[in-house]
């Protein structure tokens, strides 16, 4: 009891909570929570933070990633939006979770972008007809490059602009219009 911390129902903490000991949250916490003991988010608790602890029990609402060194319990009535990671995870009936769930040894803070393609490759090589999500993720990950190319092509004509005695460079839209006009004239 000596090392136990309680954030009461009518309390609000904005910032970082860290240290040794247990933490019971019945109020609101925004920021980061990193303690060595057990974190309990009560039914009235509202946490908008990444939480890391040895044990995490959620009965309230959490928006953020939960990382436990031992156990992570999402109990009935809990609402979690974020990723869960712990060697052991339990989600009780009535517990709401939206996010990635991963059991097993706690690795480094989820290198999501790196992990997803790797997993997609793994599933492909094993030729497993398993769950689609990894593939979907890979597909989702693919699109971003094209816009970059578009931007590049758009920015390329820029050098043509200085030929005109037009407005100074900072105004990008005008430049774009100008360059288009130039292209049209040339075409």
């Amino acid at each position: 009891m000596a090392n136990s911390t309680v954030i009461g129902r009518a309390s609000f903490i904005r910032g970082r909570v860290s240290g040794d000991g247990d933490l019971e949250i019945a109020g609101r916490v925004e920021g980061d929570v990193a303690v060595t003991g057990e974190v309990v988010v009560d039914t009235s608790g509202l946490v908008a933070a990444n939480v890391s602890a040895a044990r995490i029990v959620v009965r309230g609402a959490v928006k953020g990633d939960l990382v436990a060194d031992q156990v992570l319990l999402v109990e009935a009535g809990a609402r979690v939006v974020g990723d869960l990671r712990a060697p052991r995870i339990a989600i009780a009936p009535g517990g709401l979770v939206r996010g990635h769930v991963q059991t097993g040894a706690a690795g480094p803070a989820r290198p999501r972008a790196a992990v997803a393609p790797a997993r997609a490759v793994a599933t492909e090589t094993k030729a497993r007809p398993v769950v689609a999500p990894p593939v979907v993720r890979a597909v989702k990950a693919a699109p971003p490059p094209p816009p970059a190319k578009v931007v590049a092509t758009k920015t390329n004509p820029k050098p043509a602009a200085p030929a005109r005695p037009g407005p100074p460079p900072p105004v990008v839209p005008v430049l774009k219009k100008g360059t288009k006009a130039v292209q049209k004239k040339r075409g």
């Binding site: 911390t5 954030i7 009518a10 910032g15 970082r16 909570v17 920021g31 303690v35």
Partner: peptide, 14 residues
């Protein structure tokens, strides 16, 4: 109602 136990550090606003 609210106890900030020994060993715990809060950086921010309470």
């Amino acid at each position: 109602s609210t106890v900030i136990g020994a060993g715990i550090t809060i950086e921010g606003e309470v």
